[in-house]
Design a protein around this nucleic acid. Sequence first.
DNA 1: GACATGAGAATGTCAGGACATTTGGTTGAC
DNA 2: GTCAACCAAATGTCCTGACATTCTCATGTC
Lengths: 249, 249
Amino acid sequence: MARQLGVQIEVQIDRTSPVPLYHQLAQQLAAAVTAGRLQPGDPFENEVALGERLGLSRPTVRRAFQDLVAQGLLVRRRGLGTTVANRKVHRRAELTSLWDDLTRSGDAPTTRVLSLEVVRDEHAAAALDLPPEAELLHVVRLRTADATPLAVMRNWLPTTFGDLTREQLEHEGLYAVLRARGVRPVVAHQVIGARMPTAAERRHLQIRGTEPVLTMSRSAFDAAGNAVEYGDHCYKASSYSIEVMVDER
Amino acid sequence: MARQLGVQIEVQIDRTSPVPLYHQLAQQLAAAVTAGRLQPGDPFENEVALGERLGLSRPTVRRAFQDLVAQGLLVRRRGLGTTVANRKVHRRAELTSLWDDLTRSGDAPTTRVLSLEVVRDEHAAAALDLPPEAELLHVVRLRTADATPLAVMRNWLPTTFGDLTREQLEHEGLYAVLRARGVRPVVAHQVIGARMPTAAERRHLQIRGTEPVLTMSRSAFDAAGNAVEYGDHCYKASSYSIEVMVDER
DNA sequence: GACATGAGAATGTCAGGACATTTGGTTGAC
DNA sequence: GTCAACCAAATGTCCTGACATTCTCATGTC
């Protein structure tokens, strides 16, 4: 039976890349769907043909398709084939405001940059909605207040901020530096938790006895939806707390 | 290297069943984890050994494991193995109660009232904008989720709520009880922190090793500005984190 | 024209195999 | 006691192969 031929999508597979083959394929197919090059209901190229065209095995192609199904982008049925899924409506979550954690303190904050380099980090890239192979500017800073170590802060930013210097980052806060370049994060997703510090954190924060750290992970985006930064901060719990005001009037 | 042997779970595979083998396996493993026969952190039998024991191929076992990872029940790391995931409660820093949040996520909350009495407490009174000599209703509760201790919660309320009973407080969450009497907190000031647990908290929360608690203090007021409650909660940090969304557009 | 049947197309399931990478414990050297 | 190197254990990735099941269309018969 001559089914309607699935649409062929331009795909580049790089076997020298450290990114798994299935992941490269999944991302490019997802990009094509998300960009609107395929519309809901469009038939997809079948898994065998796509595999032959790209020189990939069927399980590898199936693994990529599976990821797209999990993201809600594709629908697959045995005997019928693969089609582009209908777009779902996403509801915005209700919001609260968060006090800026350090600007109210009045203490004399200082920053020491422990590390500043370009890296690849899949987890950070995912938190910024960027491809796993994306290069990111990774900065690790030690923040002190009144000469007392308070926090170790790790941040990852897109390499559009690759020209940030140690001097800038030590002279003022990261967000102040970003504001000076016209970048204003307006949306952030934060998760607050607690754990015991690692050996390195104990050293930097001068923690001697048994004392936890308060952690906060944050993904921040600007008004246009561009990734600004992903941060993973840990604070000496004895010296730090986070204040949240809730107003549901 | 002799790793700790993964726990063996009783599994019945029926090859005459129309249910796919991977699905039969996934369901029985999930049931064992959900039923508590395996605890967070427990090592799982590795995929090769499990396959050999059940006469299943490695891809079939991996497919079952993959489903459990997707459900948040297992954690897998290359070179290390498969372990039962920690149960994490992710909570939005909105004006909701833990009971409401756990009920919504299907985590079967229960409450045990440890103490219910009228007291004077200067600190709590101050947090409620009340005179230091004001009498307050003081309640201490142990909250469990899925039979696992999660939080010790201390609350102080004005004595207008003095007729609250143990039964009411054990049957549903504090805020549900308040709503039933037409009381609705709309403004709250919350402080999130971390510390090491007290001996009593260790006992109630069944904390054995070195593990911190995540703390949240909250003063809540109704629309007219009347004090509703002051709460001081501590949560097992390995099982709890707080989610905050920020939108400043 | 309606209905049954068969076949082709495509996905679903399962198996076996191999190599790469990560992790953490052990061992030996200093 | 510390540190580096090595190795075993375990998962991650990718491949080839085969059979089962579902779906739809074409064809033949009445």
